[in-house]
Design a protein around this nucleic acid. Structure first.
Lengths: 334, 334
DNA sequence: GACCGCCTTGCAATCGTTTGCGTAATTTTA
DNA sequence: TAAAATTACGCAAACGATTGCAAGGCGGTC
């Protein structure tokens, strides 16, 4: 079949172990032998078998990357960044799509566990307790979830949501709604709590959901929004926000004239939608990179518990005001 | 470390080989022993090591999936479908992003070759000759490229482009432009040739490009379009089309009033853009599924060349007319 | 009751690396 | 210049599975 270490050994007239060392510990070889081996390897087009290597070393140099839904434009930039970061460190990424289903997600971790050095869970829908249990078998890093003892990178949506609410209050809105996302989403909890807290005593908040975070769900809640009399809504993500805008449009409700809408994520869609969506920009790509960095650094710990310090990174977010927010109808213009 | 086949053997009081057979050839075991082994395995939480298995069998049960740019919304649905299809057959997907660079793409194939059973090249930017050479070392399946002897799934963009041109001609356009994509893209060649052929003797065609297939590039060609006097343009993909619309808008050129625009792919963006983009819908998800099916079926061939029949699938495309196309300025209304 | 054949299971080699250990070769030290 | 220390490299045992071969048990046939 392919050329193995044995072939190279024969070609270079040395033992296989010497070939192995020529790659892994070049300084332990006499320069002359080293170049002879390397040269032979080059001539034969030798590439070490990662599989065989993994078997002895116990490290596969692979990372599992599990996302809730690849088709959600929130994820691709994150995957892209993670993939590049991983490759830069000679790692490869297994991608898996959990379809927003905790059971599938768990099963994926188990299935992948045997052939990766660690798993990144992006926007996990699994319960904390279960994640902790899984992380006893395989190193796990989290994106958009915080669990003590487990490395994680989160986006500071609290700050983003506070800014968003402040923006709405300043425009004069007093009846707000939060179109919530999946119940199991940590981010959703964060935003939801922040919305209520930040409006306390200054505006009423209706919570609608939980919803699957896609356009159809957004479209579906439009009617409730229209009937509720709220003048501004924050949605769990851009997809819901955009679906909602579409739905409101269909019902003859003007955005932002009658109702203001704010999304979260700042996906490409936000800039493209008309009216262009006011949204909270989150550093997706940075999160992807940070997650693999954290995971790799976590798994590098040799002394089991000792070196395994679980880093926790929080990334800043920021409100970007576009055309989907305006003062409520009948308000004195701002 | 983890529980191995040996642990299970001990627990079930049989030899390792029996444990192995309990999974791979259950009918060769006495029912009694089989259940005893399976029960022991369950009790211990045994999961066979894919790595070790790969070493002996030579099959990793992994597939490499290389795309030109994950962030291009054309790909995620394809990746998602491919991932699900693969999983249904107990395979996992390595995703890699070639960043539109042939050199990186080649390097990725080489790097992945050692740990996958085959690779899917989506919208490859590598030259045919090189692909043929690579496919001698590792089974390859193609999406959006046709090479005889290599399994491939292509989208019938010729038909789509013909329909698009027919649509424009019928609206009364006589000065057309094609905003081309990457030179190395097979699809780009197909469309380009079709546009010229289909307009032959009925309209003039200006070709602008090649361009990197993203919004910025589209934005950049807007000026040339505005100056050229063309009344309708077909773009290599939605991204270019949308960037172009944005650019034209900035220049005060009305779409579709002054210039009609047609994209390709029907990504989410097409429905969201304003005006909503007329585009050629291509079955991305189907392509993803078909590609892994083809690849797997190709690699299953035991008799080397004999069973290795390279399937070639062509998927239908279709024009969807939205709001970005209209009769040229000054034409009698349609 | 000896022989044959099938069914079930154990044995051991193998896949392609890595790595601890040992030894030959070389250099340093006294 | 002999002994000690170091260096360069070979040997062989892992890693965790799969699989061809063989052996033992059993029932059936003549």
């Amino acid at each position: 079949m392919a050329v193995t270490i044995k072939d190279v050994a024969k070609e270079a007239r040395v033992h296989m172990s010497t070939v192995s060392r020529a790659f892994s510990m070049p300084h332990r070889l006499r320069p002359e032998t080293r170049t002879r081996v390397l040269e032979a390897a080059r001539r034969l087009g030798y590439r070490p078998s990662r599989v065989a290597r993994a078997l002895t070393t116990g490290r596969t140099h692979n990372i599992g990357f599990i996302v809730a839904d690849i088709a959600n434009p929130f994820f691709p930039p994150m995957i892209k960044a993670a993939e590049h970061a991983a490759r830069a460190r000679d790692y490869h990424l297994f991608i898996a799509d959990a379809s927003e289903d905790p059971a599938i997600e768990t099963e994926l971790v188990d299935a992948l566990a045997k052939q990766v050095d660690g798993v990144v869970l992006c926007g996990p829908r699994i319960a904390n307790a279960k994640i902790e249990r899984l992380s006893e078998n395989i190193p796990i890093a989290l994106v958009n979830r915080k669990i003590s003892g487990i490395p994680s990178v989160t986006m500071d949506v609290v700050h983003g949501a506070e800014t968003a609410i402040a923006h709405l209050l300043e425009l004069g809105h007093r009846k707000l709604a939060y179109v919530s996302g999946p119940r199991q989403s940590w981010t959703n909890g964060q935003i939801s709590r922040t919305v209520t807290a930040a409006s306390e005593g200054r505006a009423s908040v209706t919570v609608l959901g939980p919803n699957t975070p896609n356009e159809n769900a957004g479209l579906a809640v439009a009617e409730q929004i229209a009937d509720s009399g709220v003048t501004a809504v924050l949605a769990y993500n851009d997809l819901l926000a955009i679906g909602l805008m579409e739905g409101l449009h269909n019902l003859g409700v003007d955005v932002p004239g009658d109702v203001s809408v704010i999304g979260v994520d700042d996906t490409v869609l936000a800039r493209l939608a008309r009216p262009r969506l006011t949204t909270i920009v989150v550093p997706t790509a940075d999160a992807g990179t940070a997650a693999v960095d954290l995971l790799l650094q976590y798994t590098a710990g040799d002394d089991e518990l000792a070196a395994r310090t679980a880093g926790q990174v929080s990334l800043p977010t920021q409100l970007v005001v576009r055309d989907s927010t305006a003062p409520p109808p009948g308000a004195a213009s701002a």
